[in-house]
C-alpha cells in the first residue's frame, strides 16, 4: 500500500519535473509562500511587509508567512535569500538600501543589483532632516545660516548616511557640528522633542509627531507628500538626494511569469483599503513600481548612491 503510493507520488513528481518550469510557474503558487523581513517585528518596514503580505495572500490565494530575520540592516536576510531556490516561494521584503547603499557603507556587504530579481516596489521612505517645531529655521538655507552663528551644535545621526550628509554640508558651508549617535528611530525622536539636538536625520517616523517636529529638508529626489511645501535638499543646492523604497526581492533566476504574478498582486495594494489605512496612519506614501520599473530604479539608485557615498574618496 505504502509502496504503491510512493511509486505514484514519484511518478507524479517526475511528470511535473518533465513538464518544465513553465507549467509549474503557471500554477504558481500551489503552496504557502515565505516572506523574509530583515528587521525585527514592530518596526516601520515590518508593518508594511505584513500589510503587503496580507494583500499578496488575498491576490495569490495562498498564505504568505512573514518571518523576521533581523541583522545588519537586512544583509543577513538577503544573504540567506541568495541561497534559496528561485521558485517564488521565498521572497524578501526590505528597504532597497540593503542593495543600493549597504555595499558602500559596510565592508563585508558586496551585493549588486544583478544578484537578485525585483518583483516591485510599493512604498517610499520620507527620509529627511527634521528639527524641533519651535526651532528658528524652516528650511535648509535658514538652518545653515543659524548653524554658522551656533558652532558646536549637536545633531542626531541614526546611520552613517546621516553623518555623510552633515559632513558634506558642513564642509561646504564651514559649519562645526557634533554628531550624537542614536540607536533607534524612537531615540532620535526623543532627542528632538527634548531639544537635545538642533536637527536629526529621520527615516520618516518624525511625521507621527506633527505637534513637536517639523521637516526642514527632505533628502529624497521628490518633495514629501506629508510636507509638500518644504523644498528638498537638491532644491537647496546639494546634489545628495538618495531615495529608499520598500521592494520585494527574489533569488536570481526566478521565472519571469512568477515575478509578473507577484508584481501584479502587489499592485492591488495600491487600492486595498486596509493597506491604504495602515500606510496613511504611519505617514508612509504608496509609490508602486512594477517589476521592470523596480529593476530600473534599483540600477539607477545603485549608480547614483555609489557616486554620492564613495565619490569623495
Amino acid at each position: 500500500m505504502t509502496t504503491r503510493r510512493t511509486v505514484i507520488a514519484t511518478a507524479a513528481g517526475l511528470v511535473l519535473a518533465l513538464s518544465g518550469f513553465a507549467a509549474v510557474a503557471q500554477d504558481y503558487p500551489t503552496r504557502p509562500i515565505t516572506m523574509f523581513v530583515g528587521y525585527g517585528a514592530g518596526g516601520q518596514t515590518d508593518l508594511i511587509a505584513r500589510a503587503s503580505a496580507k494583500v499578496l495572500s488575498e491576490q495569490l490565494g495562498q498564505p504568505v508567512n512573514v518571518v523576521n530575520k533581523p541583522g545588519a540592516g537586512g544583509a543577513v536576510a538577503a544573504n540567506e535569500l541568495k541561497s534559496k531556490a528561485p521558485d517564488g516561494y521565498t521572497m524578501l521584503f526590505q528597504s532597497n538600501a540593503v542593495i543600493n547603499a549597504a555595499p558602500f557603507l559596510m565592508d563585508r556587504v558586496d551585493f549588486k543589483p544583478d544578484d537578485f530579481e525585483y518583483a516591485g516596489m510599493i512604498t517610499a521612505y520620507q527620509t529627511g532632516m527634521a528639527a524641533p517645531k519651535d526651532a528658528p529655521y524652516d528650511t535648509l538655507p535658514e538652518f545653515i545660516a543659524w548653524a554658522k552663528q551656533n558652532p558646536g551644535f549637536a545633531y542626531a545621526a541614526l546611520s552613517s548616511e546621516a553623518r555623510m550628509y552633515m559632513d558634506a554640508i558642513a564642509e561646504r558651508e564651514g559649519l562645526e557640528a557634533n554628531a550624537v549617535p542614536v540607536q533607534s528611530g524612537s531615540e532620535m525622536v526623543n532627542t528632538l522633542i527634548a531639544h537635545q539636538v538642533a536637527v536629526a536625520f529621520s527615516g520618516g517616523i518624525h511625521y507621527r509627531y506633527p505637534d513637536e517636529i517639523k521637516t526642514i529638508a527632505p533628502t529624497t529626489t521628490f518633495r514629501h507628500p506629508s510636507a509638500p511645501d518644504v523644498p528638498t535638499i537638491e532644491e537647496a543646492g546639494f546634489d545628495l538626494a538618495m531615495d529608499t523604497r520598500t521592494v520585494i526581492i527574489l533569488p536570481k533566476g526566478t521565472p519571469k511569469d512568477v515575478i509578473d504574478k507577484i508584481s501584479t498582486a502587489l499592485k492591488a495594494a495600491e487600492t486595498d483599503p486596509d493597506f491604504v489605512k495602515v500606510t496613511k496612519a504611519a505617514d508612509i506614501p504608496i509609490m508602486y513600481y512594477d517589476a521592470a520599473a523596480a529593476t530600473k530604479e534599483m540600477n539607477d539608485t545603485y549608480t547614483k548612491n555609489k557616486a554620492i557615498l564613495t565619490g569623495g574618496n
Binding site: A41, G42, G43, D46, L47, R50, A51, S186, R208, Y209, K277, V278, K280, A281, A282
Partner: peptide, 15 residues
C-alpha cells in the same frame, strides 16, 4: 514598539 505597530494597523496614531 510592537504596540505602536498594532495601533497603526488599526489606523490610530499613538501619542
Amino acid at each position: 514598539a510592537i504596540l505602536i505597530a498594532a495601533f497603526i494597523l488599526h489606523g490610530l496614531t499613538p501619542g
